[in-house]
Design a binder for these strands. Structure first.
Length: 950
RNA sequence: GGGCUGGUAGCUCAGCUGGUCAGAGCACACGCUUGAUAAGCGUGGGGUCGCAGGUUCAAAUCCUGCCCGGCCCA
């Protein structure tokens, strides 16, 4: 008999699918991209969602310069997932991507090309220069577009916005006009961070901090009048790291609560500049350090006084008698500390933010001492024509000659540098255009109110933005460059007042709209001024607007008045650095012109760091490029990485992490593959009503209902952290290791018309539809591949689906609790089987038929057949005799954490059914099929066998 | 230096209104299966919850300081 065994393999319903186990994503993804382009999926999506409630995520424009990096990829993937989820949740989620095209970095690139070619940039016509910048931006816009598309990001890629579109330029100029007309734009002079190399003011975002070696000086300011007589013969000692600002000095600052020592010098080291008998004023806690530095060997502290006792004190400039013959008042400054230096800060109102504000508060002049090229201006005594970077020696020499220099040294410290030229920056007093934060038209108050009305995800972002807006100075929007939108206004030469005429503004905007802002350079001024003004009476402003103002205006030229979108946006979504950048500039721009934020909610994500949590940098060599990840693993893996991370914090990436994502992906892919195989040739007629399903099936439906709630909640709140982990856990733990494993027997071996098998297939159909649509926003390629494997067709796409509507009745908490307990008990059984296996008594679990002893309360959970089914054993014995119970409690297998459950091993009685491999007593009882059990005999002889049984 | 923020198994994350809270998945090891097979199932090892103090009967969970990292600012 054994040699004539029949092979029943072809009578079993084995999974059948063309969906391959291996993704080969780098090869397959491009084919799907082609398919979507061919069927114009984007247009179909827009058509399909016409009339639905709109969801608008307004794209923060990346800078059109260079290939995308991981941070850009992360940002776009997150946006895409959120948009797609909203779309599939039933919204009309139109996404119009954009680019930031003006600005210094591009201008700098073109200048580099000029330098390389030996051409002088200043000799080139600005319009020709701008044309080259435009072409450069155009190129990178195209490159990045392809890279974003390759990432699987869905959007209106062929109708994007850019800040250099003529219409954008026109509206940006018009937005500046709004500030001009409402009176909040003013021309002022204040110190701004200035690059003597690029000869321009820089925005905060254009500044990098690097170590810089500075000359430090300790300088005496002799007191000439003071409230206390003993101070008059003393000198205030200041310390500064920027000796070149001494010519700009107009005050010294003290801290009101700081203790200052009035010191009499009684002994000095050789070569020290301090003189025996002289009186110095230094912060008490800093004196020991200062004493050493300036070479004082013996001293007496005459007395200690609080800073506020210095009120009214007046010094002279240390270079008095050499052209610096003015009083230098001592003023209180809350920025003065005793952390370093002398406890006194020298104040040059033209060379620092604190300095300038203190000067404003006390009516000090703000001298212009340094030109745009970094040279002292001709009127500056002693130093005219000297470059500030080379001023340390002459300044020190002059101070020493005056006897004011107590010591000099060097200090390496973080110092602002230009992000392009890497050259150190200076604070320089320059005329600039500002938007007022305070005053009648100030933007601070409405901006703070708008922050309160905005939802922040995560919530901490609100504090951060609020603190920044509350403390920021007026917004300097002017730049002395060429590649940008001009601040298209005129200033009356006689009065110095800017011309505020809505008609001139409107004319300018109209011209820009048709010709671009090049017109500001190509057309005569009279064309903008019209007939009411004479161009000769007006100065045409040649500054351009800083790029943050441009991107801060995107809401005006992208959202406003656009029927396909809406104003304000539902969401702005950027990295957390944009609290200082786009979130802020957009807020200020919109609050100044429209009185509210251009967004209802802000989502911030963290930064991409390496596997050790360090920032990525080329010098560290720890960068991971999205292009590399796509080439090696595919875009879906990259997208998976984003969604498996907690993106509200920094995201780590590296070799090992990517490998892990690939593993997670594999599990999901195989789950889909098995589903497809199990659903092969699924027929609607197979469906079974929920009420007729076994509890196991209803438990799966309950899980679907739970997950559906999770996905929909994340769709609304944008809080996706953990959702993917749950979906993966569902695939791995609930489906693969539990439900699938148990139901393989029924699926493979039951008659096609068995209620159990039909119920299973009904549920698998739901699982497939849910899982594939839930995964579709993240695994855009794989979900599509799986969908098409089941529903092929030219017009088919998972991305045209919505999340399945889950009947509320699927939720059954009581049943879920019961099944949680069942799985707990099952763990005891699998543990017992493992011990049997280890000792060689069984291999497959179907060889076992253990005895299960449970607490009374658990006996109604399942019957013996049910327990055997879910434990995948051939049989299970319940209802033990008293003797057996005792034996189980004594020698049976148990788990401490699951008290009262004992499993006594036992081998299944009978022979192994050749078809279903269960070991059953009846095997051998059917003469026509002696190798089969009753169930398989029925299946084989019923005529409703697997389609494969020919 | 300041503001915001984080540091739980090799990795990704739960737990953090203080008391079965030391967990999950992945990786790893071992075993099983060979009808999801370059797959699947089971079992197991692994963490002084950044460090040090403090509050409390009790702290990963609250407070303070320190160390390390990130963003922004100086």
């Amino acid at each position: 008999m054994s040699d004539s065994k029949r092979d029943y393999r072809d009578t079993v319903f084995l999974p059948a699918t063309a969906f391959p186990m291996r993704g080969e994503l780098p090869r397959r993804e491009p084919a799907l991209l082609e398919r979507w382009a061919r069927m114009d999926l984007w247009a179909r999506l827009r058509a399909a969602s016409k009339g639905r409630e709109k969801f608008v995520l307004h794209d923060g424009p990346p800078y059109a310069n260079g290939n995308i990096h991981m941070g850009t990829a992360l940002n776009k993937v997150l946006k895409d997932v959120i948009n797609r989820a909203k779309q599939m949740a039933g919204y009309d989620a139109n996404y119009v991507p954009g680019w930031d095209c003006h600005g210094l970095p591009i201008e700098w690139k073109i200048e580099e090309q000029y330098r390389a070619a030996g051409r002088d940039k200043d000799a080139v016509d600005p319009v020709a220069f701008r044309a080259e910048c435009r072409a450069y931006a155009e190129h990178w816009l195209g490159v990045q577009r392809e890279e974003f598309i390759r990432l699987g990001v869905a959007g209106d890629w062929w109708h994007p916005y850019s800040t250099m579109d003529f219409r954008s330029e026109a509206i940006i100029a018009g937005e500046i006009g709004k500030f001009l007309l409402n009176g909040s734009l003013y021309r002022g002079a204040k110190p701004v961070l200035w690059s003597p190399v690029e000869k321009t003011a820089l925005a905060d975002a254009e500044v990098e901090y690097h170590d810089h070696k500075s000359t430090t000086v300790w300088v005496k300011f002799p007191i000439v009048s003071a409230p206390a007589p003993d101070l008059v013969q003393a000198s205030i000692v200041i310390w500064t790291t920027t000796p070149w600002t001494i010519p700009g000095n107009r005050a010294v600052a003290y801290g009101e609560d700081i203790d200052y020592a009035l010191v009499v010098v009684e002994g000095v080291a050789e070569g020290a500049s301090a003189c025996i008998g002289e009186h110095l004023l230094v912060a008490l806690p800093l004196w020991p350090e200062v004493e050493k530095t300036i070479g004082v060997t013996q001293h007496v502290v005459r007395r200690v006084l609080k800073g506020r006792e210095l009120a009214g004190t007046v010094c002279v400039h240390p270079l008095k008698g050499k052209g610096y013959d003015f009083d230098v008042p001592a003023l209180p400054g809350d920025f003065v500390t005793t952390e370093a230096g002398t406890g006194f800060v020298h104040i040059a109102p033209g060379h620092g933010e604190d300095d300038w504000q203190l000067g404003q508060a006390h009516g000090l002049p703000t001298p212009d001492t340094v030109g745009g090229d970094g040279l002292f201006l001709p009127h500056v005594p002693l130093f005219a024509g000297v470059h500030v970077y080379k001023a340390a020696d002459p300044v020190c020499a002059a101070l020493a000659e005056s006897g004011a220099l107590l010591a000099r040294g060097t200090l390496v410290h973080a110092y602002p540098h230009s992000w392009r030229s890497k050259a150190p920056l200076i604070f320089r007093n320059t005329p600039q255009w500002f938007i007022a934060m305070d005053g009648p038209k100030g933007v601070r108050t409405p901006a703070l109110a708008a922050i309160e009305a905005t939802r922040f995800v995560p919530a901490q972002g609100q504090n951060r933005l609020r603190a920044m807006i509350a403390s920021r100075p007026d917004w300097c929007i002017s730049r002395q460059r060429a590649w940008g939108v001009p601040i298209a206004i005129f200033v009356d030469r006689r009065t110095g007042e800017p011309l505020r005429d809505p008609e001139v503004m409107a004319r300018t905007v109209a011209i820009f709209e048709t010709e671009g802002s090049d017109a500001w350079w190509t057309r005569p001024a009279q064309d903008f001024l019209g007939n009411d003004y004479n161009a000769e009476d007006y100065e045409q402003i040649r500054d351009i607007v800083e790029v943050w103002f441009e991107s801060g205006s995107t809401h005006a030229f992208v959202l406003e008045g656009n029927d396909a979108l809406k104003w304000p946006a539902d969401l702005y979504l950027e990295g957390s650095d944009q609290h200082r950048g786009w979130f802020q500039s957009s807020l200020l721009e919109a609050c100044g012109t429209r009185g509210r934020a251009p967004y209802d909610a802000i989502l911030t994500h963290g930064f991409v760091v390496d596997e050790q949590g360090r920032k990525m940098s080329k010098s560290l060599g720890n960068t991971v490029a999205p292009q590399e990840v796509i080439a090696e693993y595919g875009a879906d893996i990259l997208r998976l990485w984003v969604m498996a991370s907690d993106y509200t914090e920094d995201l780590r990436i590296g070799k090992e992490i990517l490998k892990q994502q690939a593993e997670l992906y594999r599990r999901i892919r195989n789950t889909l593959r098995w589903l497809l195989g199990a659903l092969d040739a699924f027929d609607e007629a197979e469906r079974v009503p929920v009420a007729e399903m076994p509890e196991l099936e209803r438990w799966v439906l309950h899980r679907l209902a739970e997950l559906d709630g999770r996905v929909r909640e994340a769709t609304e709140t944008f809080e996706w952290t953990g959702v993917f982990a749950e979906l993966h856990g569902f695939c791995a733990t609930d489906l693969s290791a539990f439900y699938f494993d148990i139901r393989k027997d029924a699926l493979y071996c039951d008659r096609a018309d068995s209620p159990r098998r039909r119920a299973c297939r009904t549920v698998l159909d739901h699982v497939f539809r849910c899982l594939v649509t839930w995964l579709a926003p993240v695994l855009v390629f794989t979900a599509e591949e799986a969908w098409l494997a089941r529903f092929p067709g030219e017009d088919e796409s998972v991305h045209l689906q919505t999340f399945p509507a889950i009947p509320p009745a699927w939720r059954d908490e009581a049943l879920a609790a019961r099944w949680a307990r069942i799985r707990e008990i099952r763990r005891v059984v699998t543990g017992a089987l493992e011990r049997e296996r280890a000792e060689g008594r069984i291999g497959a679990s179907l060889q076992a038929a253990p005895l299960l002893v449970m607490p009374e309360a658990d006996r109604s959970l399942l019957d013996a057949e049910g327990w055997a089914e879910i434990c995948i054993t051939s049989a299970m014995a319940l209802d033990p005799s008293a003797h057996q119970r005792l034996e189980a409690q004594k020698n049976g297998f148990s788990i401490d954490a699951i008290p009262g459950v004992f499993v006594l091993p036992g081998k299944a009685a009978g022979l192994k059914c050749e078809r279903c491999w269960k070991v059953l007593p009846e095997v051998g009882s059917h003469a026509d099929h002696p190798g089969l059990c009753d169930r398989c005999h029925d299946a084989v002889t019923s005529g409703v066998l697997a389609r494969r049984a020919a």
